[in-house]
């Protein structure tokens, strides 16, 4: 089972993002579970949403405490205590930011990929909604689910101009990152561990 936590601010489509991931999992014949953690339901307030993907029905309904991936819709949230809590040792962070991945990785000492999702969205959609661009990058980086499935579930959710622009946006967003970089993350981390081990001996 893969667990994902989404951090964002009220109004950034956090719950929609979580639902879209779970719907894409369903499209691919897997099981998806997505739910919000509502705090104060105000625009701009920090909010979370949780996603689980598995090959069998998902039983537990507790919050995701030890995610393999964090999707962060607002870079400023990374400064809030608790946002990166519980991230697995080889866990990865995808963030909407105009800074480079290297800068944020160095700040957090974690593996971070940054893409200017809100900027891209502003150009394509006319609104700085980072969620679908981040999802495209996430699907492409991890290879967990395909961009075709993302397009499919967007078609369930949106229509007309909003749909067309989102389809254009996810294509552009996916080009911002190296596809498959986070694929087979376990074997990568094993290689890294071996490399560290080799240097120390």
């Amino acid at each position: 089972m893969i667990e994902i936590r989404i951090h964002g601010r009220g109004g950034q489509g956090n719950v929609v993002a979580a639902y879209l991931i779970a719907m894409a999992a369903f499209e691919e014949g897997r099981y998806g579970q997505a739910f919000p953690n509502f705090g104060a339901e105000r625009r701009g307030a920090p909010v979370m949403a949780f996603v689980r993907i598995a090959d069998k029905p998902i039983q537990q309904r507790n919050q995701v405490l030890a995610p393999a991936f964090l999707i962060v819709q607002d870079q400023a949230l990374l400064q809030i205590p608790g946002v990166t809590d519980g991230l697995l040792a080889n866990g990865k962070i995808l963030v909407n930011s105009n800074l480079t991945s290297a800068v944020i990785s160095a700040q957090l000492r974690k593996e971070v990929i940054a893409i200017p999702a809100a900027n891209l969205a502003k150009q394509v959609l006319g609104r700085p909604m980072p969620n679908t661009a981040l999802l495209a990058a996430f699907f492409s980086l991890t290879g967990l689910l395909s961009l075709e499935s993302l397009a499919k579930v967007l078609k369930h959710r949106f229509k007309d101009a909003v749909l067309e622009k989102n389809l254009q946006l996810i294509e552009q967003a996916a080009q911002q990152i190296q596809a498959g970089l986070w694929q087979r993350s376990n074997s990568n981390s094993t290689n890294q561990e071996e490399a560290v081990h080799a240097t120390s001996t």
Partner: peptide, 10 residues
């Protein structure tokens, strides 16, 4: 509430 009403699943 929330735990079921707001959870998307199969």
């Amino acid at each position: 509430g929330f735990t079921l009403t707001h959870t998307l699943e199969t």
